[in-house]
Amino acid sequence: MTQLALVIDLNVCVGCHACVTNCKEWNTSGIAGPLVDMNPYGADPTGTFFNRVQTYEAGEFPKTETLHFPKSCLHCEEPPCVPVCPTGASFKRAEDGIVLVDYDKCIGCKYCSWACPYGVREFDEQQKVMKKCTLCVDRIYDASLPEKERKPACVLACPTSARLFGDVHDPESEVSVAIRERGGYQLMPEWGSKPSNHYLPRRKTNIRIHEDELVRADNPLVKEGHLPKPALDEPSFDDVMF
């Protein structure tokens, strides 16, 4: 079985919103109709987006860390939004695990959005139907595109390659290896929804320097007791010998 998903590397995401912009551009131009933008130049612009980038701060100044957090539908393996839909408009594809909304069947009751703990479904106030990330289902299978472009728009746009796309059920895929080897985790695991999208944590690269590495510990004569250990500002054993 295939389960397509995104793996998002929070260690390299710089919060540039390129994925948001490209997602909106691609998905507002498709056959499913535009993603609404209401009141775009007014005091309270609002609209439907499949993807948002948020920013969080962990810790207290000065020991803080900023975290940019892209958020879109996680295409759960047990999507709580699907069984509650009264019309069957919300469904999970058996062949690739993408969770989709049939805009022609949706009655706009918004119940699925109540049943999603992640708040990734956004109602379209113009078409009056529920919308959500499609993993660019209209791109990734398009044989008229070169193969390397058959990826979601957000993945193609990311300048730091923070977004990986692939089959998380294939243990040797790029995404599965990334999850396995780089500590990939799921959001809100407490609800048992088993999100397919994973996040890779922030990572620090530290060099551990031991005390004895700061002074000359490699003088064999010191060990044998023949000569006193030279002070740090004195010429070292190597300087004397050669």
Binding site: T46, R52, T55, E60, F69, E125
Partner: peptide, 20 residues
Amino acid sequence: IGVRHTKVVQKAQGFMGSSF
């Protein structure tokens, strides 16, 4: 968001207006 720290605060939600 999956960050293990006692103090995590949101600094931006990704847009300045309102949304659904």
